[in-house]
Amino acid sequence: MTTHLVIRRRSPLPPAEALSRVLDLRRHRPPFTTITAPFPLEAGSVVVARTSLGWWSFDDVMHVTRRDERTAELVKAGGLVRGSSVIEATPLRQGSTVTWGQEIGVRGIPDWIVALPARIFYRLLVFQSLR
């Protein structure tokens, strides 16, 4: 099972630039995690987020399955963290709205435990990326 999250944020940026900022993984700074990814992300790119706490570590492997000016889709391929993301930037009269839809599950951890920290993490990620 997985938890479904949707985060929306308005931005003064045009859709292509807003999406580009959110997908610029150099802007993402999750704690205890190193992200290896090409820039810019394109369909077919592979992203590896390696999280380490002392001797314990795991890789969150993601494949970019779609990328155009307004939409990106990533699918998690690791054994511990599973799910997918769809990130869309839609135009407004002035600027855009970025919507991050996330399905996430962690093997061995109930979804209700995953939901709150995931919601906080992805909300911060989107808000910080669009500054």
Rank of each mutant, 00 (worst) to 15 (best):
T3W: 01
L5S: 04
L5H: 06
L5A: 03
V6I: 12
I7M: 05
R8T: 08
R9W: 01
R9A: 09
R9D: 02
R10H: 14
R10K: 14
S11V: 01
P12H: 12
P12D: 14
L13I: 03
P14D: 15
P14Q: 12
P14L: 13
A16M: 03
A16P: 00
A16E: 14
E17N: 06
A18Q: 01
L19W: 00
S20W: 02
S20C: 07
S20K: 12
S20Y: 03
R21P: 00
R21I: 05
L23S: 11
D24E: 10
D24F: 03
D24C: 08
L25Q: 06
R26F: 04
H28L: 13
P30R: 12
T33M: 09
I35T: 12
T36Q: 12
T36F: 09
A37S: 13
A37L: 05
F39H: 15
P40L: 04
E42T: 15
E42F: 06
G44W: 00
S45L: 07
S45C: 09
V46W: 04
V46K: 13
V47K: 01
V48L: 08
V48Y: 02
V48K: 05
A49E: 05
A49I: 00
R50E: 09
T51M: 07
T51H: 09
L53M: 14
L53D: 07
G54L: 10
W55K: 13
W55Y: 07
W55D: 11
F58C: 07
F58G: 10
F58M: 10
D60E: 14
H63E: 15
V64W: 00
V64N: 01
T65S: 15
R66V: 10
R66Y: 05
D68Q: 08
D68V: 05
R70G: 13
T71V: 15
T71L: 11
A72I: 01
L74V: 08
L74I: 07
L74T: 06
V75R: 11
G78Q: 05
G79W: 07
G79S: 13
L80F: 11
L80H: 05
R82L: 11
G83N: 03
G83T: 05
S84V: 00
V86N: 03
I87P: 00
E88C: 12
A89Q: 02
T90S: 13
P91Q: 09
L92R: 15
R93A: 15
R93E: 14
Q94Y: 09
Q94C: 08
G95C: 04
S96E: 01
V98Q: 02
T99A: 10
W100A: 07
W100M: 04
G101E: 12
Q102I: 15
G105K: 03
V106W: 02
V106Y: 03
V106N: 07
V106P: 09
R107H: 10
R107C: 05
R107N: 06
G108K: 07
I109C: 09
I109Y: 02
I109S: 07
P110M: 06
D111L: 07
D111T: 14
D111Y: 01
D111R: 12
A115L: 08
A115M: 05
L116P: 11
P117G: 05
P117D: 04
A118P: 00
A118C: 02
R119P: 00
Y122C: 08
Y122M: 10
L124E: 12
L125P: 00
V126T: 00
F127A: 14
S129Q: 03
R131S: 13
